[in-house]
């Protein structure tokens, strides 16, 4: 059986509609109206032990809501969840013993106390045997380079330092699953890089199953073999990053620098199966679809008609592909994708 199984999961929030203005506040008291927000709207997937998944989706897609339900702190409206064989919201205490969670925009550390105090406390929270605790603390001090601020009050830590502290805190009890909700939010490039190194090590050496949400495509590109895309509470993609490129990234761009020594070319270039999407002096951008022609064919056509100095082919950026998927997805259900 899979480590995590989610089947037709729904979460609907009932939100009070507020009347506006001072009188409105009074009206709201007597005449309450509600509307439903379908934060998670029928999601199914399963995760095997040892996987590392990235979950993408625009703001408000339902990622955090899904993670909260997987943790057991939010009760689903309907559907089935099993984590390590338990239903998280029914067996919260049993489940959370085996999982670690980091909500990137929050901290579980005691703000006014030295970092080490928060970490030491977790030993009692999770009943980690003393020897095991020492071993883990030692390992994470090294891997996350905690020593420089281990004895500083958490409120004095930089965001990156605090995040490292939070990661250690989520892992001291040897969880089999780690949920990370936007772990790289607000980190600089170096800190992001180190965070990714750390997560890779964790996954590979300790076999921790990792599910992370992010808005940073590089997190997924560098870490996750599998990608989930959620939008409007629906799972619109579940597969590998390469597959998404093959499926959606069919538009490529040929960039050519024309040799204009014998006079400039006026107007857009005219070649079959391609269309000029941009021009900047002698440099032209030609967009073409892999289904219509190959790069080699196209280059041959262009070279036959124009004198070229240089050329490059641009692969579609994964970010652009995802943006297109978000933009297109409003009307599409997961079946059609």
């Amino acid at each position: 059986m899979a480590l995590i199984e989610v089947e037709n999961l729904h979460k609907t929030f009932r939100v009070a509609r507020h009347h506006r203005g001072a009188l409105g506040a009074i009206r709201s008291l007597v005449d309450r109206q509600y509307f439903d927000v379908h934060a998670v709207d029928g999601i199914s997937f399963s995760i095997e032990r040892g996987e590392m998944l990235g979950c993408l989706g625009p703001n408000g897609a339902g990622k955090s809501t899904t993670i909260k339900m997987l943790t057991g702190i939010l009760v689903p409206s309907s559907g089935r969840i099993e984590v390590l064989g338990f239903e998280p919201y029914r067996r919260r205490k049993d489940v959370v013993r085996h999982i670690g969670v980091v909500f990137g925009q929050r901290t579980q550390l005691w703000w006014d106390l030295p970092l080490i105090e928060s970490l030491d406390l977790l030993r009692y929270v999770y009943r980690v045997p003393a020897g095991r605790y020492e071993e883990n603390l030692h390992a994470f001090r090294r891997l996350l380079d905690l020593d420089p601020f281990l004895n500083s009050p958490v409120r004095q830590l930089s965001l990156g330092q605090r995040m490292r502290g939070d990661l250690a805190a989520a892992l001291l009890h040897d969880p089999s699953v780690l949920y990370l909700d936007e772990p790289t939010i607000g980190l600089d490039v170096v800190a992001k890089h180190r965070m990714r190194d750390f997560l890779r090590t964790l996954n590979r050496e300790r076999g921790v199953t990792v599910l992370l949400t992010t808005h940073d495509m590089a997190d997924v590109e560098q870490l996750c073999a599998r990608l989930l895309i959620i939008d409007h509470g629906k799972l619109i993609y579940d597969g590998s990053l390469e597959a998404i490129r093959d499926r959606f990234g069919t538009e490529r761009t040929l960039v050519v620098d024309l040799d204009e020594q014998n006079g400039a070319v006026n107007g857009p270039l005219d070649v079959p199966h391609a269309r000029e999407i941009r021009a900047d002096g002698p440099r032209r951008w030609l967009s073409f679809n892999r289904a219509d022609t190959t790069a080699a064919e196209l280059i041959a056509h262009v070279a036959a008609r124009y004198r070229l100095r240089d050329l490059t082919i641009e692969e579609p950026e994964i970010e652009a592909i995802i943006r297109r998927i978000y933009e297109d997805s409003s009307g599409i259900s997961s079946q059609t994708l």
């Binding site: 943790t71 702190i73 919260r92 205490k93 909500f103 929050r106 901290t107 579980q108 999770y126």
Partner: peptide
């Protein structure tokens, strides 16, 4: 109110 309660609730106590 701030939602920080999630970390207290995700503990086995």
């Amino acid at each position: 109110r701030t939602g920080d309660v999630v970390s207290d609730l995700s503990k086995p106590f």
